[in-house]
Structures are given as C-alpha cells and as structure tokens.
Nucleic acid binder design. Structure first.
Lengths: 250, 250
DNA sequence: GTATAACACGCATAAACACGCAAATTCAAT
DNA sequence: ATTGAATTTGCGTGTTTATGCGTGTTATAC
C-alpha cells in the first residue's frame, strides 16, 4: 500500500463518513497507528483535513447530517459490519446479498484483501469498484427497486452455477423455529439459492429483527453458520440460536 | 520488450488497477527496477501519471475518475443527453450501455415515461430505481471497474435473449470508415451484442470522439441509426456519416 | 484525581531511490 | 556485412524515505 494511496483513501472515507478514527484506519489499512497519525499530521499540515484527538474531521463540516435516531442505528450497523468483516478470509468467493448492512460490510472490507464478491446489489458493486483486490461478479435480473437488488429467474439461475465459501445474507425477519423470512416471494427464491450456493452462511441482524417473521420463508434458522447481532441482546434471546448450532457473534 | 511498449502497459495497468508498484512491474515485465523507475520518471514528466514513493498513481484517483469525467464538458453532455432523450417512445424496450453520457440520458428520462431499460451499468440501474415507470433489467457479468459496466460471456449471453427497440451505445471512438472501436476487447464483445440485439442504435458522441479509432472494432459505422453530437461540429465532418444513411442530430 | 487511550519523539531498519558508468542494444550509413 | 553514434539498460554506489517500535507525554473519560 502506497503512502499517497492511503492519503487518498483517508480523504475518501472522510468525505463519505464525515470522520475518520485513527485506530480504525490502522486496522483496516493494515499499518501501524503511528503511520496513520503521521498521515493525518501531514494532511492536516497540507490543509486537507482537520485533525482532532482520536482521528480527523473534514475541513468543512460534512454536508450530510443524520438525526439522532438514525444515528443510533447507523452506529449499530457499523459495529455489526465491523464484526462481519472479520469472518472474511483471503482468497474466498463471497456472495453478498443486498441491504444497507451488507453494503456497510462491503465498504469495510480491508483494502489489501484479495477475494471474489458475487452480488445482486448494484450499490455494492459500485462500492467495490474502487477496491483494488476484489473481483466483482454482478448477478443480473429484474431490479427490485424497493431493496435495490436484482431478482428473478435469471438471478437464481446465475447463482446456481456458483459455489461460494461464504455468504452474507441480509435479514428482514429471523425466528429460531420459523426460520428466515421475507415479505416478497421473489426475494425468497433468490435468498434461498444464495444459501444453497454457499458453504457458510452469515446473517447480520439488528436486535429488532430477532424473533420476527414474515410471509415467505426461505430457510430454516439452522442453515446459518453464524449470526452477527448487537451486543445488547440478552443471552436468553440468543440461546435458541446457539442450540441450533449457530455461532453467535455480538 | 520495447520501451514504448512498456509505457503502454504501465498506463493500462494504472487504469485497470488504480495504481502500479515499481517492484511488481519490475518482476512482471522482466526488467530492472531502475528501468521501471526511469519509465515512471519520464511518464510523470510527460504528465501521464502521478509518481509517488513506491510506484505511481493515476493523475486523478480511480474512485473519482468516473465522476470527474462527468464534470468535464458537462454542459455539452447535458445537451446531448437532452437530444437523445427525445428519441425515446413510450412502451419501448431500451438497451443502455454504460458511460457518463448514457447515465445522463437515464437521469433525464421523462418521469411519466413507461418503458423497460436493459443495462449492464450498475450506476444507471441505481439512477433508474427512483423512476416510477421504468422497469429495469440488469445484465450481470464481471464488473469492469474502469467503466463501471458488466462484461463477459454472461453479459453477452443475457443480451442475446433480448430484442430491444432502441439502444443507446456509449462511444469511445468513432470513424466513418473504421467504425466504432474501444480499447478493451471484452467491451467490444458486449457492445457488439448490444447492437445485434436492438432494432435501432443511437450513438452519443462528443466532438472529440469523431474521427478517432481504437484497438478493438465492434461495429461498422453504418450499423448506427442515429448519431447525436455537438452543434459545433462542421457539416464536412459529419457528411461521411450522413452518406452512410445515419441520421445525425446536432 | 486516576486510569486509559491517544499521542509525540527519537531511533533503527529496510525499502525505495538517484546517479554514474559500462555493457548491451538499436539504427543508420557506408 | 561493418562500423560508429545514439540510445537503452543493468549494476554498484551512496542517499533518501517510509515505517514500526520503545519511551515518555498529553488528552479524555469516569
């Protein structure tokens, strides 16, 4: 990773997220914190950002502002994404379903990671276009505007030719007995095939999704290898999932 | 391996990967690091790339290049898009190629229009998701990060099942005798099939594209039904296209 | 106030670099 | 073909740059 490359990346992140944290950058870019701090010092001297204790902020305050409620759920999803990313290994073929949480995972994939990502979600494809080590395979189909994912027979058919190592599945509703369900039948078919096409399946679910169900069930809960959820969730709520042999990450 | 040849290769790598590393180039091109460094020094002096410690980066960073191209000659492209939009009729099936100009066309499609758009360009799909009357069919494939379009056998195969009424094709290079050409072979295959799958083909080309050519030719010029270009272009320049039976819009 | 994390500084080290020179290559003209 | 000039390349030399670690200091939170 080149120094200038890092600088550009930090700037990008800064614009996108509105802030950067030194320790996070250090982990994600796989360099020491000293190096990140040096970077931030230099970029501050160059007037490119405003350095603060812990990281840096944009020179001009970020254009986008979140209201408080959104902020909480955004923070939570960032944390979930952070944990989910740790499950990825170099060289894997990874299916990524659509959704805001999986998009966050895609954005956080370490920059030196070399892997293949298969996705039916155009925003994820666009986000990964700037990642040097990731080969992106886009699954075609009807664009389902509600979730910004491609669905339909073409999507399922393309998926059926793939054997992936890992699959990040977006979750609307999850229940230990009922299983995983969605409100639209076409999504059901696609997600079902995603699970069938992958060795390991990881679901990322915020606390409010746990114990809920919807009209179309695409899989029993025990098809999951791993469930990533928020730290606040009680052990009692998670016990049924653990009993099914699912690794629960909090 | 000739010097110029090496320069060419380095530039291609730079565009595709977003960066080049001196030591890697040295190994891959089987020349000493000194030679690579000399190359990079020369190319930097010629303004072809941005040299940094360890290698080189594109003049504009890869992630924002797509947006930068949009900023360049923005008014001209807006005008072209405006004209191109007038060619669309209600109820049509329209193939939209990738590229900044076609993205503009997609954004300008009238809100009450009802049609089906087939595209291999994720940003176009995302842009059209908020359009109430347009059904979007996304063509899958390998994501070609440079142009943000999907390419490869899967894309061509999916296209071959489609009969569209209209096709907006992105143009790198157009020449009345040589035809339409692109710098990458995979793009050639996809664009060729797009033309084959559509009754009418519209090319949108800014003035600087006219009379140029590149390595891979995907179609003769007379495959076009219509060429949309800038008003400033002289009648003399356009005469050869008119003689081929192409409707020229300025 | 105290604990913890973030920070600054100096130093060591390895990688990347510039420069000069000689060998190799290319090209043109004989 | 042969010679010679110009260019290109590889290697040895010494220099600069980037990074990580140890040490001690400052800031922030409880």
């Amino acid at each position: 990773m080149l120094r200038e490359e890092r600088h550009q990346l930090i700037l990008e992140r800064l614009i996108q997220k509105g802030k950067v944290v030194a320790t996070e950058l250090s982990q994600q870019l796989q360099v020491s914190e000293d190096t990140i701090r040096r970077d931030l010092r230099e970029m501050d001297a160059a007037g490119l950002l405003h350095r603060v204790h812990g990281g840096a902020l944009p020179k001009a305050p970020a254009a986008v502002r979140y209201d408080d409620r959104q902020l909480h759920s955004i923070e939570a999803k960032e944390q979930l994404a952070e944990k989910a990313v740790s499950l990825v290994r170099d060289g894997q073929v990874i299916i990524m379903d659509g959704g805001t949480t999986t998009l966050r995972v895609a954005e956080r994939l370490p920059r030196q990671l070399s892997a293949t990502v298969v996705t039916n979600c155009p925003p994820i494809a666009v986000a990964l276009a700037s990642h040097p080590g990731i080969e992106v395979i886009m699954l075609g189909g009807h664009l389902f505007k509600n979730s910004l994912i491609n669905i339909g027979a073409a999507t399922v058919s393309a998926l059926s030719n793939i054997r992936a190592d890992l699959c990040f599945i977006g979750v609307y509703c999850i229940h230990p007995e009922i299983g995983l369900s969605v409100p639209f039948i076409e999504e059901m078919h696609v997600k079902r095939q995603m699970i069938a096409s992958s060795s390991e399946v990881v679901a990322i679910a915020t606390a409010d999704k746990l114990g809920t169900s919807s009209s179309f069930i695409f899989s029993p809960a025990n098809a999951l290898s791993c469930l990533v959820t928020e730290p606040e969730v009680s052990a009692g709520t998670l016990a049924p999932y653990r009993e099914l042999g699912i690794t629960v990450m909090q």
